[in-house]
Design a protein around this nucleic acid. Structure first.
Lengths: 177, 177
DNA sequence: TGGTGGCTTGCAACTCGTTGCATAGGTCTG
DNA sequence: CAGACCTATGCAACGAGTTGCAAGCCACCA
């Protein structure tokens, strides 16, 4: 399972509370990996039991206290071990692909509407990624290294992925025009 | 959930037994949607209880009998209803993306090896898809319609997706060369 | 005849993730 | 002060998917 390790990566980048992480997963990171706060709390609890992360109570002005988690040496070891393991290559698992393939068993025009709605979604995401790219890397990848370079490259992956979705869904709609 | 509906689409294309479906999901369809035979049997059983599919015992020569499932009118209705529903757009959920982003917290060269292995995988899949394309649609999309056109377009999606993976991972490796 | 191996169906236990709800502290406003 | 709303943490129940195993049927071969 990878949510544990996704959280370790996020916490190594910046220690945070459960809700902070949920917000981050709902924003920049969340386009690549989504998780609800319930799931995050559950996993953080298990990781704390396992000694992978440690929490500090932090008082806030005007808000309830929060527990800020940081990665322990044991957690860093576990992350390093996982990073070096091979990962299987998964299939698409896309509901939309199933609908596109099965469109002739239902209302074709309704499926095309579903495709159009998803295409609009992917356009929004693509725009969002491109804005992030312009804001955070206005000069391109030149001179980047280490964590910054990796963050840039993953954002590049998001852009390539969204461009592919846009191209595919557009091709589908045009073929059925 | 979509495995039920993926099975309905597969059975509308061609009635089949549980193991037949598992084989299909391990081959052409399976590059877009994977499922083990255990999961398929479980879902088929539930769908039979719900009256979405009906089974016929079929004797085979030299092999045990098998239960061939076909979609009932109620199942066809359920499929048509689902096809017209909007589907949320999901995030990537890629272990590999997490590893690429977190590479600086572990052994960078080990992560690059993982990326290389996945890149090789995606090359294999891409070749496989292109062979399917050449075999099944030697003249391109011209003249296709209905189910055949949809099958062609989903295969196109597989090719576009794999090309994107190849491009992305290649870019990652070159940036870290 | 007995063993091996493939095909077919299935159960059981477990993990992962989602959904809905609960609790508690704090601010703001009527 | 009461009520609405936000932040923050968490529990419980459920559904989906994976892994490991079992069992019956059949063919083939020593």
């Amino acid at each position: 399972m990878a949510l544990e390790h996704a959280l370790l990566v996020a916490l190594r980048e910046q220690p945070a509370s459960g809700l902070d992480l949920a917000k981050r997963f709902g924003r920049s990171i969340g386009f690549f990996w989504s998780a609800t706060h319930q799931q995050i709390y559950k996993v953080l609890g298990r990781m704390e039991t396992d000694g992978w992360v440690a929490a500090t109570e932090v008082a806030q002005s005007g808000k309830p206290d929060k527990k800020v988690y940081d990665v322990t040496p044991a957690g860093a070891d576990a992350l390093a071990t996982w990073l070096a393991e091979p990962t299987p290559t998964h299939a698409l698992r896309s509901d939309l692909a199933v609908k596109m393939r099965g469109a002739s068993f239902g209302d074709r025009e309704a499926v095309l509407d579903v495709v159009r709605a998803n295409l609009a979604d992917h356009h929004v995401r693509l725009d969002h990624y491109r804005q992030l790219m312009k804001r955070d890397y206005p000069t391109g990848a030149g001179g980047l290294a280490g964590l910054e370079l990796d963050q840039y490259l993953v954002l590049r992956g998001g852009i390539l992925t969204e461009e592919t979705w846009v191209a595919w869904l557009t091709e589908y709609l045009e073929a059925h025009a």
